[in-house]
């Protein structure tokens, strides 16, 4: 339906990637390709993960304002990670146990988020604003707990852990790239196959049941997918509060449709442009030292305010 617009977006993403790979580079391709190439791959994976998880979450929450990070998903992940460091110890973990920790934390995040957000979302006639407020306060609670635990671990070196809880795009943990790629692409594939079901779920509980879907079960399935996406992208670049909201709001503007097939593609492309293009412009062209995440938070926060105020007036 929006083939032309999607083509434009894809071209924009292509240009961004080209810019990211070439602008300001001195070495030859044999250096560039592995070095910038892995970072580019990581950025693209994060883009897909954040946009997909936001779309999925907004559909089951039936709300365009809620996103996983506003509801405290990534804060919860960081908390679980801090607790696991606290209990199991050790910055100097070997590669295999780092992997094991990632997988255990991921499992715990799935259980905790289904328990917590599942209960919140499956309550009928829940006041959306109260739910939002709960999410924001929960996120604060998780963040404060993480920072407390970080200081409990080592009061002198808490800064190293604190750094991990800020978003960063210039230094990306590429150790887990292979596994993350498999996980993200796997989940995105499942989401893609669910796209028609998601269209139905977006109609609301009663309509979905009438058309033979099971909203309760789907909600839990989708929460699991969201948990995986959030865990992987947070492990990569840290929490990015408003990226999901920003790119999905833009996607609704560029491709105004209820079709998840279209929205999943357009929001991923926009997220890719925002991350790769934004990083290129900010770092290579303007030479600004401010991380992209701060800028995205600023813009995304404004979008959020506009959305909320518009919703209030209706």
């Amino acid at each position: 339906m929006f083939a032309r617009r999607l083509t434009f977006l894809a071209a924009g993403l292509g240009l961004s990637c080209l810019g990211y790979m070439t602008i300001g580079s001195r070495g030859g391709w044999d250096f560039l390709l592995p070095f910038r190439g892995t970072r580019l791959a990581a950025l693209l994976l994060v883009a897909v993960a954040v946009s997909t998880s936001t779309i999925l979450f907004q559909t089951i929450a039936r709300n365009r304002i809620l996103t996983p990070s506003i509801m405290g998903f990534d804060a919860l992940y960081l908390l679980i990670l801090s607790v696991s460091v606290f209990l199991l110890g050790g910055a100097g973990l070997s590669e295999t146990s780092a992997l094991a920790r990632f997988l255990v934390s991921l499992g715990l995040l799935i259980v905790a988020s289904v328990g917590l957000f599942g209960t919140l979302l499956l309550q009928r006639r829940e006041d959306v604003m109260r739910m939002l407020l709960t999410g924001v306060v929960l996120a604060t609670l998780f963040r404060s707990l993480s920072s407390l635990i970080a200081r409990m671990i080592d009061p002198n070196e808490y800064s190293t852990i604190q750094v991990a809880s800020y978003a960063r795009f210039s230094r990306i943990e590429t150790d887990l790239l292979g596994l993350s790629a498999v996980l993200i692409l796997g989940v995105v594939g499942i989401a893609w196959r669910m796209r028609h079901r998601l269209d139905i779920l977006a109609l609301g509980r009663d309509a979905a049941i009438n058309l033979g879907e099971n909203p309760r079960r789907r909600t839990i399935e989708v929460l699991i997918l969201v948990a995986v996406l959030v865990a992987v992208s947070t492990a990569f670049v840290g929490p990015i509060a408003f990226l999901g909201l920003l790119v999905v709001s833009l996607a609704h503007l560029v491709t105004p449709t209820g079709s998840h097939g279209t929205l999943l593609v357009s929001s991923s492309l926009i997220a890719g442009i925002a991350l790769v293009g934004g990083q290129t412009v900010l770092e290579r062209v303007l030479g600004l030292s401010t991380p992209l995440a701060v800028l995205i938070d600023l813009l995304g926060g404004l979008v959020f305010l506009i959305l909320v105020l518009k919703g209030a007036r209706r």
Binding site: A202, G204, D206, A207, T257, G258
Partner: peptide
């Protein structure tokens, strides 16, 4: 769902 359909009193359908 292929046997029975319902039209609820106040369906909350997304408007777009």
């Amino acid at each position: 769902a292929r046997r029975l359909a319902i039209l609820p009193q106040t369906p909350e359908i997304a408007p777009r």
